[in-house]
Amino acid sequence: MNRLHTFLPVIWLVSMLFRLVLGAVFVYAGIEKVMDPAAFAIDISNYRLLPGWMINPVAIALPWIEIFAGCSVLAGVFLPGGALIISTLLLLFATALGISLFRGLDISCGCFGSTAGQGITWWYLVRDIILFLMGCTVLLLSHHPHLSVDSIIRKIRGDSSR
């Protein structure tokens, strides 16, 4: 038990670094997609996984969900919820990428919203899996966030109730 306590600062530091990375990536990816929803709709349809009627609703809503989840993880507001959304999305992205790579599709990733650029590769899948594991770590440690708005509010409430 004492040994675990020794490592706690390291665990929280790692969790916080993961939060910053995931939050920044998701906010950036969301903004890029919001800029050009039609291009993102093409990227989604290229995966050939969703029925036609679902493509536009996903192209409209998903970027904003990414931005909100990213902000939540960055600021530490609703941290467990943000981390759960990010982990779930990354699992879905990795599955879609894996299926497309297995099917040999030469398509644009759409990860950051543009139709221009390189096609999908196995590296993208590895990247998503690494980010997914980071998301799971943040989720599991989210009941004790440091340097977050939630913890500041909790501290203020604690001080005022004394």
Binding site: V34, A38, F68, F78, G82, L84
Partner: peptide
């Protein structure tokens, strides 16, 4: 807690997305 918060975050995000899409000139159907 994560599940409930995720639902709330997603709901707010979808509402903002709908409003933004309705206002922008190149919004999707």
């Amino acid at each position: 807690t994560a599940f409930l918060q995720a639902l709330l975050l997603a709901l707010i995000a979808i509402l903002i997305a709908a409003a933004f899409n309705a206002c922008r000139p190149n919004g999707l159907k």
